[in-house]
Computed example of a mutant assay.
Amino acid sequence: MTATRKYVVFFVALLVASVVGIAAAQPTEVTVRVLSRGGGFLGAPAGGAEVTLRDARTGELLARGMTEGSPGDIERIMGAASGRDGRIATEETARFSTSLDLQRPRLVEVTAIGPMGEEQAANRATATQWIVPGHHLTGGDGWVIEIPGLAVAIDSAPTALTLNDEPAGVDVRASITMMCGCPIEPGGRWDADDFHLAVLVYRDGERLREQPLSYAGEPSRFGTRVEVTEPGAYELVVYAHQPDTGNTGVDRVAFVAESDQAALDPVAAAMARCGMKSTQAADDGTGAVAADGL
C-alpha cells in the first residue's frame, strides 16, 4: 500500500470515528435550582443566580446560564409537611435548564453564584455529581444547590461630613432580605426579632461601638442614627445574622468627617492629616503661608 493510500485510509477512519462519536452522544437534560438557606429559590425578585456546569476533572465548560422564575411556594418550602425528601418546587419555581450531549458518564461540577440582583451580597456554592448519558437529572426538584447568607445593601449614608460645635448625626438606612429577596419584618414569615441587625462604627481603623438597627416601617428596611463627634475617616459596617441558620450578610460604607474650620481652610485640613499645625500668615501681598513644624 502506497504512503498516499495509507494517509487516505487513516483520515477516512478518523472521520468515521468522529461521526460515530457524535452519533453516540446522547442528549441529557439537567435542571438546576438554587435555594436560599432558610428561604425560597433564587429567581426574579433576587435577580436570579448564575449557574455554571463544568467537567470536574478537565474543567471543560459544559453549560452556563441564569435561573429564571419565582421564589416558589414559600408555604410549601418552609412547611414541615414537605420533609427532607419531599418535592418543594413547582413548575413556576426558578430554575436553569440545559441539555448536555454526553458520550460517556461525566463527573460534573456545578457552581452557583447569587443573588445577582445584589452583587455585593452574592455568595458562591459548588457541588459535584456524576451524570450518565441519557439519564436526565430533572426528577424531583432537580439538582438543588443551597446558597447561605443574607442580602444586605446600605441605601443611604454620607460620603463626607462637616462638623461644627455640635455633634453631627448620620442616618444609616439598609435593605436586608433573605438571599431569595424574601422580606424580613416584625411578625412576618421571616421575623425581624429572629435576626441580629446592627452597624459597627470605626474611626481611623479603630472600632468605636456597635449600634442595633431598628425597623424603618417598611418590609426589609432598617436603620439607625450614628452620632459623629470627632473628625476622622469613618467606616460603617452594617451586618445581619440569623442565629438559627448561621446566615450572615454584610455591607459597608466609608466617609470623612472634618471640622468646619478645616473645611473652610483646605490647607490646614491637609496639614492636619499629616500631623502638622498651621497658621495663616498676614497678607503681605505674597500669599505666603507660615507653618509650625516645617
Rank of each mutant, 00 (worst) to 15 (best):
D265N: 10
V250W: 02
P243D: 08
G249D: 04
D260P: 00
N247A: 08
Q242G: 10
T248F: 15
E258Q: 13
P243W: 05
E230C: 02
H241K: 05
V256C: 05
T248R: 15
H241A: 08
D244V: 12
Y239L: 12
G232V: 05
L264C: 05
A262P: 00
S259Y: 01
Q242K: 15
V253K: 05
A262I: 03
H241R: 07
A257Q: 07
T229G: 04
A262Q: 11
D251T: 13
D244I: 14
V253I: 15
L236R: 04
Y239D: 11
V253C: 13
D265I: 03
G246S: 04
G246V: 02
V253R: 11
P231Q: 08
Q261L: 12
V237H: 00
V228C: 08
L236G: 02
V238E: 00
A262N: 08
E235D: 13
E230T: 12
A257R: 01
V228N: 03
Q242A: 15
A263H: 06
F255C: 06
D244P: 04
H241C: 00
E230L: 11
Q242N: 15
D260Q: 12
H241E: 06
A262Y: 03
S259G: 09
D260V: 08
A262G: 09
A233K: 11
P231F: 03
H241I: 01
V250T: 12
Y234D: 03
T248E: 15
A263F: 07
A257C: 15
E227Q: 03
F255L: 13
G249S: 15
V256P: 06
Y239A: 00
N247F: 06
E258L: 13
V237W: 01
A262R: 07
A263C: 03
V250N: 04
V250S: 07
V253Y: 07
D260R: 11
P243E: 06
T245I: 14
T229C: 07
A254D: 12
T245C: 07
T245M: 13
A233D: 15
G232T: 08
G249C: 10
E235S: 14
E258W: 06
A233E: 14
